[in-house]
Design a protein around this nucleic acid. Structure first.
Ligand SMILES: [Mn+2]
Ligand SMILES: [Mn+2]
Ligand SMILES: [Zn+2]
Ligand SMILES: [Zn+2]
Lengths: 135, 135
DNA sequence: TTTTCACTTTAGAATAATTATAAACTAGAA
DNA sequence: TTCTAGTTTATAATTATTCTAAAGTGAAAA
């Protein structure tokens, strides 16, 4: 993803391309593979990468703005920190608790044969499969 | 589950059956259906139910002791609070975000046909399926 | 039974993650 | 250029949880 696309992505979701947002967006989206992170881990990586530091509050604001805009998804992982994911398509995860690392599983790599029907007038919104790993 | 069983359960896991532990255990385990809760919700219910109040730290201590002993499991739910579950068998969940309510799915009610192999020397510990509901 | 003491409870302090506040700054429309 | 709504920032506040250390207690041993 090029810088011009970053600007397009921000503008298309009515997010002013400020210096901070562009830097965070470049860091998150200019990569080939999915990136899973917490605000804390992102902050550390941004400090290493960038000359000027971005306020932690801005990182929280930006990550939430990106999530709201649909550019990031949130992944449920055991623990107290919130994990985010640059892969916003429907997919699943391995979780390697040893390394506190999430690994993507393509939606097509898991086929569910039997599923219960949703209770009392509810519908199924989505199905998330979480595979815990051990050594 | 009767009181005698509660005492047995505590003693068998080398947990002294103190007044507080017995009261919490009776509240959690003397019921027919699975009970999903957070420490906050449990605390509120205990305040209503019991004459004398149990310190919040004791509720944290006790819930963790029960979890360590295998009498409770932890469920991953979107949000910042930790959810616990009196159902310690391998099973899955519906999540009704409207009511912030978990609903059990028996392990046999979900059959997975195709699953990817675990990465690089890792093994699969367990598979958790989480079905989000909508109206 | 009493004594003893490791285990437990408790109030309150501490920590960690996240959100709120409000003043200073800035992108970009006019 | 000017203007202003949107944004950033340092810092305070909030929330969930864990820590601390003093007081209390279950139950083994005397
Ligand atoms: Mn979590
Ligand atoms: Mn959670
Ligand atoms: Zn992912
Ligand atoms: Zn359950």
């Amino acid at each position: 993803m090029k810088k011009i696309d970053i600007l397009k992505k921000l503008r298309s979701s009515r997010l002013r391309p400020t210096k901070q947002r562009v830097e965070i967006a470049k860091f998150l989206f200019e990569r080939e593979k999915t990136f899973h992170f917490t605000v804390e881990s992102l902050n550390k990586l941004l400090i290493k990468k960038l000359a000027s530091k971005i306020a932690l509050a801005t990182i929280y604001n930006t990550v939430h703005a990106f999530k709201t805009a649909g550019h990031l998804s949130e992944v449920e992982v055991r623990g107290n920190k919130t994990y985010f994911d640059t892969n916003v398509s429907n997919h699943h995860h391995f979780y390697d608790s040893e390394n506190a690392e999430l690994i993507d599983i393509d939606a097509n790599d898991i086929v569910i044969q039997k599923i219960p029907k949703a209770p009392n007038g509810k519908k199924i919104k989505n199905v998330e499969v979480f595979i815990n790993l051990k050594n």
